[in-house]
Write a protein that binds this DNA or RNA. Structure first.
Lengths: 204, 204
DNA sequence: TTAGATATGGACCAAACAGTCCATAAACGA
DNA sequence: TCGTTTATGGACTGTTTGGTCCATATCTAA
């Protein structure tokens, strides 16, 4: 058996006192809620519950951490979506509930978070090519899931087979992004659901 | 005749050396391009071409200036949209070109700016009630213009008369916002136009 | 000419920023 | 136990942040 497989203790020295994955998750949530610029290192250290030294030791810099958060967000969301699609009663049911789910954050007391990838796109994708790539990758991944959902809906007879699954998938990402932004703009839940209905009608 | 109407020189003292409206416009463009947090006072002073003293004398604070920029943006855009609607050959033609216009910023070398109001919604509308109100007002104004366009399209027979003009108007704002975000996410122009077509199809 | 009022340039400020450094703590193998 | 290695707390740094202050410049009205 290859010795290098056992990596839970690769080196000697004082062991890390915090859960790296958990800290990353906490950081992701802060960035998700506040964005990159509005999140200070102080904010991060507090919610990650680690010291400055550990932070730089483990994550290198604020920017590097952010990149890892973007990747984590993308993986987490795509996995969530894929299982939801698998469990859905039909392709169109999945697409409908994806649109309607945007209303979940509407009218709540705390500020809506939206989608970290799209928040990042509007915050500074255009000024940072590394981040821009991660954003584009994320958008493509989301699109892929919707593409599979559209293909399934077409097989199930709910969407005309001659329509481009690729285009409809990107339309889904567009509509959901728009709806989430509307929620952030303060549009009430009832209106969000009405608009989601109109958005859905473009698929059939 | 009331003397107070003549306000081009209301008080005595050294006259202002810069054009206040022009400085405001310059500031608006910086915020539009970079967002609030990423725009430093240094950035503002440079592009507004005024001194620190003049800045605080004339605009009070960065935040106050930002609020005025949001208002200016809203007024400017609504006026632009209203004249475009008036000049449009039909209601539906206006709606179509509004959707397609989002592709204008796609694939360019410089970073796309999107819509200042919606950028602000995603950046920090949830954390600042004053800004949140201005964002909501802006979104409503945009919606009103689209509502009139939908009503016209209904009279012209391009949109079924039984559909809610209010809901379709909010759908338009949603779709355009989504499309602009897609542009920021790096989706190519051709795809934007395809998605815009799908979005348009929900109106008929 | 002068008194009053406003505008401006530039020095200045405290706080916050991301990031570095080092002494010390805590693990390991030998 | 001891030498090596890694992790951590906390002091520290240089820069940037938004904002203030004051001496001076430039106007109007008297």
């Amino acid at each position: 058996m290859d010795q290098s497989v056992h990596n839970y203790r690769m080196t000697q020295g004082r062991p890390i006192e915090f859960d790296s994955q958990q800290a990353l998750l906490a950081a992701m949530n802060v960035f998700w809620q506040q964005g990159y610029e509005s999140t200070s290192l102080e904010d991060l250290l507090e919610t990650m519950a680690i010291s400055r030294s550990s932070f730089y030791q483990a994550f290198g810099s604020k920017h590097e951490l952010f990149e890892r958060c973007l990747a984590l967000f993308r993986e987490t969301q795509v996995r969530r979506m894929r299982t939801a699609l698998t469990k859905a009663s039909s392709g169109i049911a999945f697409l409908r509930s994806a649109l309607q789910a945007t209303a979940a954050e509407a009218g709540l007391t705390h500020a809506p978070k939206g989608c970290l990838i799209m928040n990042t796109a509007t915050e500074f994708a255009g000024r940072d090519s590394t981040v821009a790539d991660l954003v584009a990758d994320g958008a493509n991944d989301f699109s892929q899931v919707f593409r599979d959902a559209v293909l399934r809906a077409q097989q199930e007879g709910d969407i005309a087979p001659d329509r481009s699954a690729d285009v409809l998938a990107r339309y889904m990402v567009t509509a959901i992004t728009g709806l989430k932004t509307m929620v952030k703009a303060g549009v009430p839940r009832a209106s969000i659901l009405e608009v989601a209905d109109v958005a859905l009608s473009a698929l059939r």
